[in-house]
């Protein structure tokens, strides 16, 4: 008899884990709360570090799932209502009243983007030309990044760490991917509009992964992006609808101000809204410091929840890049397989 695994969340982690598990002969149900698979990936244009089109990666995964339809069943517009422990395995009840007898549950509910409105002083939702990194990505997909009045922006500033490393919003952790995304997007603006001046306001540049430093180097030397070590204090609108921004150039030790046509807020990752609910239903532990799920340990049990039969993968256990998320998903599949065959 084949083992049954319920995967909660149909983003990259859930899809990749489902593919790995199906490849090992298990039956997988993906429970996705929206009407389609893909998660945040579906909204992105190109991916760091080598500008791969997000759609290509997503299509490969979707095709994989389609080809494995004897093993993977996708249930969209559904959420987990309850999970009960049974003699063998878990009884998972969905919001559409479907009941699944599962041998294991994998939680891949991912992350949410920080709501930029919470940094009131940055004026998101108030000033027309303040965008988030996700809004900008949407515009890249349209191949046009214009100001509210239709002009090509002459000056664009990127603000790193919006909703990350910030006690004021109770997010003291680093979201990991915003620095490199800012470098990517700054370079893409220069690709699109070589005459536009681009400024990146960072606290630290965390170019930790393969090819990241090269991207940064190219942004500086090839694209001429200005990197300013300093955090944005406040934004306001000038009489002609541009944005005055203030920071300190901490490497010069002097306050600095400049006027830009567009401001991009690099919004960080936060635990998704379902985290608390799922933690109650599935008896999962949530970290009091960053509010993401806790795993049994950070080494050999990095995909194990504290509850038997339940596993975790992807950005629901803390910010991760897409490559890291996919690896984590495969590693979770391996952990589940070992658990089921032990």
């Amino acid at each position: 008899m084949e083992d049954v695994i319920v995967v909660i969340g149909g983003g990259p982690a859930g899809m990749e884990a489902a593919l790995s598990l199906a490849g090992r002969g298990h039956k997988v149900y993906i429970v996705e709360k929206t009407n389609a698979l893909g998660g945040h990936l579906a909204r992105w244009d190109r991916l760091f570090p080598q500008q791969d089109p997000a759609q290509d990666i997503l299509n490969d995964m979707l095709n994989g799932i389609k080809n494995a339809d004897d093993k993977i069943e996708v249930i969209c517009n559904a959420q987990v209502q309850s999970v009960k422990k049974r003699m063998r395995g878990l009884e998972v009840m969905l919001s559409n009243q479907k009941m699944i007898q599962a041998d294991a549950v994998l939680v891949c509910c991912g992350f949410e983007l920080f709501r930029a409105e919470r940094k009131e002083e940055y004026g998101y939702g108030i000033y027309d030309n303040v965008l988030t990194s996700a809004d900008l990505e949407e515009r890249f997909r349209q191949k046009k990044v214009l100001c509210a009045d239709g002009r090509v922006p002459e000056k664009v500033a990127f603000v790193h760490c919006v909703g990350s490393r910030d006690e004021k919003v109770d997010h003291t952790y680093c979201s990991k991917v915003c620095c490199v995304t800012a470098v990517k997007q700054a370079s893409e603006i220069k690709e699109l509009y070589p005459q536009t001046e681009v400024f990146n306001l960072y606290m630290d540049l965390r170019m930790f992964d393969r090819y990241f430093e090269q991207m940064y180097h190219k942004a500086q030397s090839h694209y001429g992006v200005h990197f300013v070590r300093g955090r944005l204090s406040e934004v306001s609108e000038t009489a002609d609808g541009r944005l005055q921004i203030k920071t300190e150039d901490t490497l010069l030790g002097r306050p600095m101000k400049l006027t830009v046509d567009m401001l991009v807020l690099m919004v960080g990752m936060q635990a998704c809204a379902q985290t608390e609910e799922l933690s109650e239903k599935l008896d999962l532990k949530v970290s009091s410091s960053d509010h993401f799920f806790e795993t049994k340990d950070l080494f050999l049990k990095g995909n194990y929840a504290h509850t038997k039969g339940i596993f975790l993968a992807g950005a629901c256990t803390g910010p991760k890049s897409l490559p890291d998320t996919l690896q984590d998903a495969r590693s979770a599949a391996e952990s589940i397989h070992r658990y089921l065959t032990a």
Binding site: E117, E120, G123, Y124, G125, I126, Y127, D128, E237
Partner: peptide, 10 residues
């Protein structure tokens, strides 16, 4: 300027 945004904060 979008007044709606300010109203949300208010």
């Amino acid at each position: 300027m979008k007044l709606e945004g300010k109203k949300l904060i208010w």
